[in-house]
């Protein structure tokens, strides 16, 4: 399971007519109904609700942390908001900041309880970034020297003009987004 959602495999057994009917139904749903439907289909919402078993190591009113059943290393945690948010940009600021704090403390616990030598935190937004589940999550992976997990961030030389151009575009967009608010 790890990061994978079950939506596709769930649809796999339907006939074309059934899929069409389902698509039609989805189109007619209100945003609230759609959210409820997504929640129903989301394995991690089922875990949060306790309808699917998991190895839970932390819980508060905002989030839970469970063991990934396909871990990069033993002790690999998934920190999930209880509410269903498909990607990070949809998570409200206060909930995300709370999760950041929890991630910090969980990282400390991985160092202490498993004698990890480091922790990788990893978030993927979008399929192109490697996201597989339809539920936002922070991966916390306990690390040891030479564990072969990877997650190495390459460094590439960039021309000064290119860097300046990127900076300009990002700053321009930030300003525009800020003004909109």
């Amino acid at each position: 399971m790890s990061d994978q959602g079950n939506i596709k495999s769930g649809v796999g057994g339907l006939t074309e007519e059934q899929i069409k009917a389902l698509e039609e139904k989805l189109k007619q749903m209100s945003p609230e109904e759609l959210k409820a439907f997504q929640k129903q289909q989301c394995i991690f919402c089922q875990i949060v609700a306790g309808r699917v078993a998991s190895k839970k190591v932390y819980e508060d009113n905002v989030c839970i942390a469970i063991l990934d059943i396909n871990p990069a290393n033993p002790g690999h945690l998934l920190l999930l908001p209880k509410e269903h948010y498909p990607i990070m940009p949809l998570v409200p600021k206060e909930e995300l900041e709370h999760m950041g704090k929890v991630a910090k403390h969980l990282s400390h616990c991985l160092l202490k309880s498993l004698k990890a030598e480091g922790v990788s935190m990893f978030i993927a937004n979008g399929v192109a970034a490697g996201q597989r589940a339809q539920h936002f999550m922070i991966h916390l992976i306990p690390r040891k020297e030479g564990d072969g997990v990877g997650l190495v961030i390459p460094m590439r030389e960039l021309k000064k003009e290119q860097l300046a151009e990127i900076e300009k575009r990002l700053k321009g967009k930030m300003k525009a987004m800020h003004e909109k608010k």
């Binding site: 480091g118 970034a129 030479g146």
Partner: peptide
Amino acid sequence: EALHAQGTNIILQNGVPAG
């Protein structure tokens, strides 16, 4: 928005063994 990225990764490398 600015770069029309199709996704983003957020990564924290905490400690030398984490890169």
